[in-house]
Design a protein around this nucleic acid. Sequence first.
DNA 1: CTAAACCCCGTACTCGACTACAGAGTCAAG
DNA 2: CTTGACTCTGTAGTCGAGTACGGGGTTTAG
Lengths: 162, 162
Amino acid sequence: MSGSAMKAGTPARLLKIGEVAKLAGVGIEALRFYERQGLLTPSTRTESGYRLYGEDALEQLDFVRRSQALGFSLSEIAAIVAESRAGRKPCSTVRDLVRQRIRELDDRLAELKRYRRELAKTLEGWESLGDVKGHVCGLIESTDAQSPRLQSRKIGRKANVD
Amino acid sequence: MSGSAMKAGTPARLLKIGEVAKLAGVGIEALRFYERQGLLTPSTRTESGYRLYGEDALEQLDFVRRSQALGFSLSEIAAIVAESRAGRKPCSTVRDLVRQRIRELDDRLAELKRYRRELAKTLEGWESLGDVKGHVCGLIESTDAQSPRLQSRKIGRKANVD
DNA sequence: CTAAACCCCGTACTCGACTACAGAGTCAAG
DNA sequence: CTTGACTCTGTAGTCGAGTACGGGGTTTAG
């Protein structure tokens, strides 16, 4: 990621929050927010209280972003980070987390595929049908005879634990 | 779902909110909420104001639930419902919506698959590596040399429109 | 030296999809 | 007739991941 060209000459320059934000492509407020969540602590502060981040902050941020993308919530990420910072190997914890996430991912993948198929089928149906008016075009009903009883209504992630 | 066995003898019996809730497996509050959102209006009210739903309410709810599962937001669904109730064929609108959703779905599917692969790879790496402590186990970094630069950081659905 | 640009903190707001609660009225069984 | 289950309205709270704002202090370029 274009970051291996500088190695000598830069003795871990400290960045102010705005620079980090710009470099990482996140908002300043997000950085402060991450700090509150224990996700990314500036390595120092100036006399006057300005946050100063080491360049590793960018890596850390990347870690956060990528973990997020992989389906972890900020609090999970925070937990991992905390573990790791406590010197304890977060590996087993993290591994469990990851295993679980993989399982969830598989489920969601399957679901999404099913939905995709349904949508496509529905669409086809309409296309060949011309315009029936009124009634909602039978959007979903009867595309599938087995009523797949969707269990994760919350398509976003992680149905709320009832 | 098991609803074609009653056809004669039941002159579209009216259901009270609690019955609908039970039959549909949603909370009463959710039904009232849906009503506020224009998603499901009871067909009548009693003198005293009790909501009375026809049996089609169950179908409608199913429609809502399934549309949701297919990735539509409640407001999109409401729009569709409104269109259809206005007598105008929502089909073209809906078709566009659906086409778009399919595209989005494909993207998400691809993304998820990629993430899945990454996760699995990471996990493998750990498994073969034993426990390194400190540092976050290289959770993500360097699993993939091409830095897939994730564009939809918001994995939930529909990155906020910048 | 001054003004613009940057940064601080704390609080409050956003959005989506609900859920909870308070206080009051209604309905069916015993 | 009373009790308890059910329903009404309206407002408020939840969760996640931030964003926005107000009222300051600080740094830096000109």
